[in-house]
Nucleic acid binder design. Structure first.
Lengths: 196, 196
DNA sequence: ACCTGAACACCGTTCAAGT
DNA sequence: ACCTGAACACCGTTCAAGT
């Protein structure tokens, strides 16, 4: 998945290596337009509308983002990066269990920013963007540390967690009080993971 | 949701009341065709193909099943009924915790029979068919008994359960070893619900 | 009351022509 | 190398005409 593309961090922006200047400019405009369109109309918004908002031809959009998931992964990139970073910062001086809880709540909340993004979290998370990689790395790190500390059962995998977080995010998309429901469901999951 | 339609149980078959004989015949053929098509091609199969297999006009399909979810609820009806019935039978002489575990595993497995049915479990379950009602009733009964016995936390709702079961079913749809994974994830959920 | 399928609308995806 | 948008394919949904 996107194995051939490489990424460069330039300050806040994510830039794909080796693109001609005009192509990179178009790419950024597509990302901005997609973010807007996803927020207003959900992850199912017609890609034609994204192209129209970005003022590029539909072919250009397909050239950069061959699938809807690739586009979703790209627009989620910054959000995912910040979730991972906040988690790393928190974990330095806090309780591992609290760090895990907060990480999962953040992930679930950030997976329900667009209507119907949650259903494809499992696919999106494997897209190899820096944000996706950061989430995976941080999640696995927290999981391993918690397991070593005996706080989490040994038979729980990161995959299991992603699956249940998807379920939580799906439920929350249709919910009126997202935040408290997320907290409740994450609590359920955490208790489930804890060794008896 | 289908509030105006009434249902009659006639042996194994579910028959909608007040339909002309030819209409009821068509309805049954749509159900058979839909079941086949969903199994072979997933819950996303074009409705035109279902109509073609049933040898009815597409308009007839829309007349009986105004939405895809209504059709999914109808084809899932027998499966859901049998899940609820098996659960009731089991519960009579067994351990309440085991009854709950088996019920959740059955529900998750039967929610992943068609590719991409799981994503709409939350919507489908509210469709008022006998099967959906039976699942809801049985689930709530098991939950209440388990809570009264102090086996399950008091702050868990049936909604919470449906949500996590959806997540499990979604994960399992894409999985190669469904049965064992379902068991593992249900175990996680159950431990989560248990009072500490 | 019910059935049919043509007609319309909408969206995804490709690709020939152009810079 | 990159962009464009017409063209094609496909699917959902409605509705006038028919039994």
């Amino acid at each position: 998945m996107e194995a051939s593309s490489t990424w460069q961090d330039e300050g806040e922006e994510l830039v794909e290596a080796g693109l001609r200047a005009d192509a990179e400019r178009n790419r950024q405009r597509i990302l901005v337009a997609a973010e807007e369109a996803f927020l207003e109309r959900g992850a199912d918004v017609p890609l034609e509308e994204v192209a129209k908002r970005a003022k590029v031809g539909i072919g250009t959009l397909y050239r950069r983002f061959p699938t809807r998931e690739a586009l979703l992964a790209a627009t989620s990139n910054e959000r995912f990066l910040s979730v991972a970073e906040m988690s790393r910062a928190r974990d330095a001086d806090g309780d591992p269990a609290d760090a895990m809880r907060q990480f999962l709540e953040d992930l679930a909340m950030n997976t329900s920013v667009y209507q119907s993004l949650a259903a494809s979290l499992g696919t999106v998370i494997q897209h190899g963007t820096p944000g996706c990689n950061a989430i995976t790395a941080e999640g696995q790190r927290l999981l391993q540390r918690a397991q070593e500390a005996g706080i989490v059962r040994g038979d729980v995998s990161f995959d299991d967690i992603i699956c249940v977080v998807s379920g939580i995010a799906i439920a929350v998309e249709k919910d009126s009080a997202p935040a408290s429901r997320v907290a409740h469901l994450v609590d359920l999951l955490l208790t489930g993971m804890r060794v008896r």
